[in-house]
Design a protein around this nucleic acid. Sequence first.
DNA 1: GTTTGAAATATTGTCGCCAATTTCGGCGAG
DNA 2: CTCGCCGAAATTGGCGACAATATTTCAAAC
Lengths: 226, 226
Amino acid sequence: MADEGAVLDALRDAILQGEFVAGQRLVEVDLCERFACRRFAVRAAIPVLLSEGLVDVQRHRGARVRTIPIDEAIEITEVRRMLEGLTAARAAERATPADIAALQDIIGQMRHAVSSGELVSYSDANARLHALIRRIAAHETATGIIERLRAQLVRHQFRLSLVPGRPSVSLAQHERIVAAIEGNDPAEAESAMRDHITSVIESLRSLPAEGSHRTGAAAPLQRTRR
Amino acid sequence: MADEGAVLDALRDAILQGEFVAGQRLVEVDLCERFACRRFAVRAAIPVLLSEGLVDVQRHRGARVRTIPIDEAIEITEVRRMLEGLTAARAAERATPADIAALQDIIGQMRHAVSSGELVSYSDANARLHALIRRIAAHETATGIIERLRAQLVRHQFRLSLVPGRPSVSLAQHERIVAAIEGNDPAEAESAMRDHITSVIESLRSLPAEGSHRTGAAAPLQRTRR
DNA sequence: GTTTGAAATATTGTCGCCAATTTCGGCGAG
DNA sequence: CTCGCCGAAATTGGCGACAATATTTCAAAC
């Protein structure tokens, strides 16, 4: 781990995997040890993470892992609602038979996950379905923004899939989206995607107050001060 | 000009004002002279500009002013179409009587600018109207993205207002948007904004090949190599 | 005259050092 | 016992120097 890009990716992954407590301070020398790199590489990575909305930086106080309050999570999802509506519509215009087969394959996996109650594998398939729709849409600008926003939501997203009954509701919505894409109906695809994400927003609104959850990843109790 | 934030702002403004030729190389020491600062400040500013999509950076080759090809300008505008639709809808939900008076005031200025053929002042009023709608919507996430995208388009945007007959078409569309906001009709406001920006996209598509325009700002012939 | 190669120059990448600022710990006064 | 103040440690901010890489220039051979 000598070059700068690798440190950036490793640090971003660590944050996304929840390996830092929310609000945790990112001390430069500690990160140097963690990633076996020079301070220079860490200092280069932080502005990038700042621009991605993953950390908060204050002058002379360094960077902290940014916590997205629930209000902002809702705003972010409202934006995603519009942009994923755009990608769904474009996907409906552009999907090839092979694309549609791939979409239906994922739908099959989702059905299986729901019927056998596998939450994690449902959540995975869900992410893959949305990613595939973006790829079919081939809209770089929208895709870039959606993925950046998605990264900020990882923690909330995780809690969502645990809401009882949500997967089966969500499955039906995805089936409608795929059907619209299959039928080359952009307006219906957009509408279906918007309805789907509207229900995500409603679930977010009903989520209990944050701060009392555990990520599945190894989160070795991190001290905030030393 | 000692501190870093000021250099960032100055450099961004210089790019947005078109004071650098498209594709122009941004040599660090030259910028140090230009802004009377240390190389350190310039190096801190560049990653931020990169994240804003205003420059392109290649390893060992430095930063260049990024040129947005017309295809990407269209993609960006498609995204803006969705997000400004969102802000228009929210504005329709939230606008106070004072807000509506302010909107109508700007519409009045636009009418005057159209009837007297003042292109620049129409373009100004146009920008102010969209900005006011964003402020009324009070949607930080959407506003942040819209403004970042807008910055990337300054050059194309400028050419648009020169298309003959466009201002009067555009004026009618803005009147419809404001009427919907005034009537507290979110769906109609969104639809009106989408139609408006759809017509912007069509104008972009019909724009002649780029590269043969001059900005009004002082653009002292910059050498690309020395 | 054109092309190829290598030396020279220009430019960015990386580092270690010191300064500025914040944060932590203890001491004393009330 | 609590609160506020002051010094010490920790941490980030900024800089100059040097290394690595790219670009240009110039000369020589074809």
